Amino acid sequence: MLQCQESDIKWASRWDSYLLMTDDQIHWFSIVNSLMIVLFLSGMVAMIMLRTLYRDISKYNQLETQEEAQEETGWKLVHGDVFRPPANSDWLCVYVGTGVQFFGMMLVTMVFAVLGFLSPSNRGGLMTAMLLLWVFMGLLAGYSSSRLYKLFKGSEWKNIALRTAFTFPGSVFTVFFFLNILIWGQKSSGAVPFTTMFALVLLWFGISVPLVFVGSYLGFKKPAIEDPVKTNKIPRQVPEQAWYMNSIFSILIGGILPFGAVFIELFFILTSIWLHQFYYIFGFLFLVFLILIVTCAEISIVLCYFQLCSEDYLWWWRSYLTSGSSALYLFLYATFYFYTKLEITKFVSAILYFGYMLIASYAFFALTGTIGFYACLMFTRLIYSSVKIE
């Protein structure tokens, strides 16, 4: 006959032993590692901003004759082309709007998680909150994409709103639906029911799409952002660049540091998702998110400055891709994690893993790329508004 013994543990705290995490030291190492990267980048940016840029601006503003101005080299020479709209500017507006939507969703989600409103013990609560926030952040996506579109002298704001509302969600829903069909084919209980799929489509078309159009309308109604310098009618020829300033090389190099700032914490996130462990120290995650923002902004500014100094004014897309390339390293790390930590042997399970990680990498690309883009946009507007242009 079993005997019941009275326990000193309160009923409300009966699950605490399962939620106990013993790897705080590793998390602190993750934070210290990320902070070291940020401090290193901050030192580089401070050196550029406080020494090199100050010297450049003082020299440019002290030129006495037009002949001296024409003999100058560096970033001032491309002032007549630096704000020229890039090729495929419509798609840049769409992806910037998508990144803003992701940024708003992630920021609000982590603030609520840090404050304790979203708990990992509530199964599905975090994902539901993220979906709802994504839907309502469509207002910011439409607003930011149309504001940038008007900066590029565009006029068809409805076209931009339509692309913003359907490009990213449409591609993600297509991959998600395909993966769900595979789960249905295996007759697994993990398949998303048809009613849930219908609810997702209803949220997308009923709330998100209208909010994107409302945001685009409000953004396009506002006066266009004026460039600090005038753009020449005839584009300047970009001189031949050194091998290390090659667009592909600099883009791939730029993505290493933002990924390096988060990859240790990424291990715990992947473990909590794929090995069914709890992740609830959102304070660490929020700090890593802030570090990611600073890292993306700083590495994009540094490489943008070097690009302009080499008289290459095609910075719009490169500023987005520089920090956005960290998504490539995220997917490569997910592949490494799959072969070293997971014991998945079934083909369908492997397809599910890589499909979901592809979606996560795509979202990470939009988020980090947008951060780098806005950092470079503010940087270029700041430096070109600080020099005298004849």
Rank of each mutant, 00 (worst) to 15 (best):
N88K: 10
N88V: 02
D90Q: 11
W91D: 07
W91N: 12
W91M: 08
W91K: 11
W91A: 10
L92S: 05
L92R: 03
L92N: 07
L92M: 08
C93N: 05
V94I: 05
Y95R: 11
Y95N: 13
G97R: 03
G97A: 01
T98V: 14
V100E: 11
V100N: 07
V100C: 15
Q101N: 12
F102N: 13
F102V: 01
F103D: 14
G104L: 15
G104Y: 09
G104I: 15
M106Q: 11
M106T: 15
M106K: 12
M106G: 04
M106F: 13
L107V: 15
L107D: 05
V108L: 15
V108W: 08
T109P: 00
M110E: 11
M110D: 09
M110S: 09
F112Y: 01
F112T: 13
A113Y: 00
L115E: 06
G116V: 00
F117G: 03
F117A: 14
F117I: 15
L118K: 03
L118N: 09
P120V: 01
S121N: 14
N122E: 08
N122T: 15
R123H: 06
R123L: 06
R123I: 10
L126P: 00
M127R: 03
M127Q: 09
T128G: 14
T128M: 15
A129G: 04
A129M: 07
A129V: 04
M130H: 07
M130C: 15
L131A: 13
L131V: 11
L132C: 10
L132Y: 01
L132V: 13
L133A: 13
L133T: 00
L133C: 06
V135L: 09
F136M: 14
F136S: 13
F136D: 11
M137R: 01
G138Y: 02
G138E: 04
L139I: 12
L139V: 08
G142P: 00
G142W: 00
Y143A: 06
Y143T: 03
Y143L: 15
S144H: 02
S145I: 02
S146K: 05
R147I: 06
L148S: 06
Y149W: 04
Y149F: 13
G154Y: 05
G154C: 03
S155A: 12
S155G: 07
S155P: 01
